[in-house]
Amino acid sequence: MIHFNDVTKIYNKGQVETTALQNITLDITQGTFLVVLGPSGSGKSTMLNLMGALDEPTKGTISVSEQNISSFNDKQLTQFRRDYLGFVFQEYNLLQTLNVKENVEVTARLSNNPMEIETVLEKVGLKHHMEKYPYELSGGEQQRVSIARALVKQPSILFCDEPTGALDEQTAKEVLGVLKALNETENMTIVLITHNQSLATIANRVIRLNSGCIVEDTINETPSGVEAIKF
C-alpha cells in the first residue's frame, strides 16, 4: 500500500543542511496499524509528511496505492490527499470559524462516497455537540471532531500525528479506542506517529526511528486493546 524506496529527505536552512530521513526503504500493507516511535528530531514528522503527500523527498521514490506520488506536482498531490488520505493532528487543527458539523462537512464534500455527517459524529460520540464551535469543546472532544473530519470521507489511510499528545489519559484512551475500532472494523490503514512508547502495544507493526534511520521494525502479532496502555 505504501512503499518507500531508498527515500532521503534533506532540509536546507541557509547554509545548514539537515538530513531528516536517510535511505529509508519500507513497505506498509493495507489494514496495518503502524506506530512510528522515536525521540524528537528522529524524522517521524518528516516520514508522515512524505507518506501524507505533504512534502516531497530529496531522493528516492514513494508509492502509495501503487501511485508514485514523489513525481506528483502540487495539484496532483492535493488531489491525492483529497482522494485517499485522512489526517489527525496533535493540535486538532479545526477551523475555529466553523461549528462541529461544518468542520466535518468540509471534508465530507471532498469524497464521492462520504459517510453521513450525523453517523460519523455519533460514532465519535459528538452528535449532541454538532452546533457547537471548537472553542466550546474540551481537548478530547476537539480531537474527536478532528477524527470525525478525517473519517467522514472514508479515507484509505489515516495519518495521526501525536493524536493524544494534548489529551489526558482517559480522553487519550477514548480517542485511541476510536482509531483501533476503525482499523479493526473498517480495515483502515492507520499510521500513528508518537514519542509515547506505550502506544506501541496496540499496533500490529512498530517502527523506531533515530537520526533519520529505521533502527527497529517489529511486527506485533498480538496487539492489545487500549485498556492495556499505561501512559
Binding site: 505533504l54 495539484k75 492535493t78 488531489q79 490527499r81 483529497r82 482522494d83 488520505l85 489526517f87 487543527n93 477551523l95 470559524t97 468540509v106 471534508t107 471532498l110 473530519r149
Partner: peptide, 13 residues
C-alpha cells in the same frame, strides 16, 4: 492557517 489546513485536507487553490 485556513489556507494551509484546506490544502492539507485536499482542497485545490
Amino acid at each position: 492557517y485556513n489556507i494551509a489546513l484546506f490544502k492539507v485536507l485536499g482542497y485545490q487553490d
